[in-house]
Design a protein around this nucleic acid. Structure first.
Length: 317
DNA sequence: AAAGGGACCTGGCTGC
DNA sequence: TGCAGCCAGGTCCCTT
């Protein structure tokens, strides 16, 4: 499941292999992949072909490629971006054309098994490589949109100095890996919410990039029960859980550098470093890594939370 | 206004 | 062996 660290790994791969390249062709293979693109599947190729990718930027789980027309470089820079969300199962693959098994650039995919079956769209680049968007469960999507100024005036996200982001991502908050995140302001805002802490961690308009896996991990590290009320958290507890989210995502990002291939061979994810270094997610019934108490799984709005019933005490009532 | 819940989607797994 | 049903999860949208 691509959350912040996984998307950041993909962004870094795009930065290395795609930035600076001109897009020479584009194909959409499944209409659902571009369901949020205003002009639809017929419009998207014409919007990207002929542009040059000038940056790869990420905010939370959203990733975008800044697109520059030849005229933009001489004028005010890019005005549009190709926005990508990987959803549950999306992948971006850089392929080198030619015979034999495709060589996949370092984006975390087994080159022996490119998932052509779930190819949803692809771009051709001027160096002969191709960028594939593969997505089994089709929760991911691509679109081209205008850039707008960031609400806080800061950089659009990780990977861009420009204070711009695509309009459809303008409501997404900064994430814990973003140097421009204002932690104190986030703590204050979190504590004004009247909800449960786990819901707040998953609210992408409050803090982005955290999904079910890293929410459970952050709560475990901070010893907070997922149903604790946000407006009753101390400033210290709120700071701790957000700092824990940053720490666990940095750890995952570091681990992703070495074991990402294994992780993404299976489209549905959970393998590689996940199995070895997670403390909470998916460990129901197994002993807590701190105290040995069996971890508990509780259903939570169509999904689940896993936590230690001893280290993470339930709120009263 | 803000919070909560369902829909969307596919493949793998479980149980009959 | 086959098949139905459940589960996973991020985000948008609708309801309360």
């Amino acid at each position: 499941m691509p959350e912040c660290p996984e998307v950041e790994t993909v962004r870094e791969g795009i930065e290395r292999h795609v930035v600076g390249r001109r897009i020479t062709g584009a194909q959409v293979h499944h209409p659902r992949a571009v369901r949020r693109h205003v002009g639809g599947a017929l419009d998207l190729p014409g919007r990207v072909v002929g542009t040059t990718v000038s940056a790869a930027v990420r905010r939370g789980k959203y990733l975008w490629l800044l697109l520059e027309h030849d005229a933009d470089a001489a004028a005010d820079g890019p005005t549009e971006a190709l926005l990508v969300h990987l959803g549950m199962s999306g992948q971006l693959l850089v392929r080198h054309e030619g015979a034999g098994p495709a060589v996949v650039a370092d984006l975390g995919v087994d080159p022996e098994h490119p998932s052509t079956r779930h190819l949803r769209a692809d771009l051709a680049l001027d160096d002969g490589t191709a960028l594939w968007f593969v997505d089994q469960r089709t929760f991911g999507h691509l679109l081209v949109a205008d850039l707008v100024v960031t609400p806080d005036g800061g950089p659009g996200g990780v990977g861009s100095p420009l204070p711009l982001l695509p309009e459809p991502a303008a409501h997404i908050a900064r994430d814990p890996l973003d140097p421009a995140l204002d932690l104190d302001a986030l703590v204050r805002r979190l504590r004004t919410k009247r909800t449960e802490i786990k819901r707040a961690l998953l609210d992408q308009t409050l803090v982005s990039g955290i999904g079910n896996i890293y929410a459970d991990e952050a709560l475990w590290r901070a010893r907070l029960h997922p149903r604790r009320a946000t407006d009753r958290l101390s400033r210290q507890a709120a700071t701790e859980v957000l700092t824990a989210a940053e720490d666990v995502m940095r750890d995952a990002l570091a681990a992703g550098g070495t074991s990402f291939d294994g992780l993404y061979v299976d489209v549905d994810g959970a393998s590689g470093y996940f199995e070895r270094s997670l403390d909470a997610y998916g460990r129901a019934g197994e002993p807590c890594h701190r105290c040995g108490t069996p971890m508990v799984r509780e259903s939570f709005t169509n999904r689940s939370s896993t936590f230690c019933p001893r280290c993470q005490r339930a709120p009263r009532g």
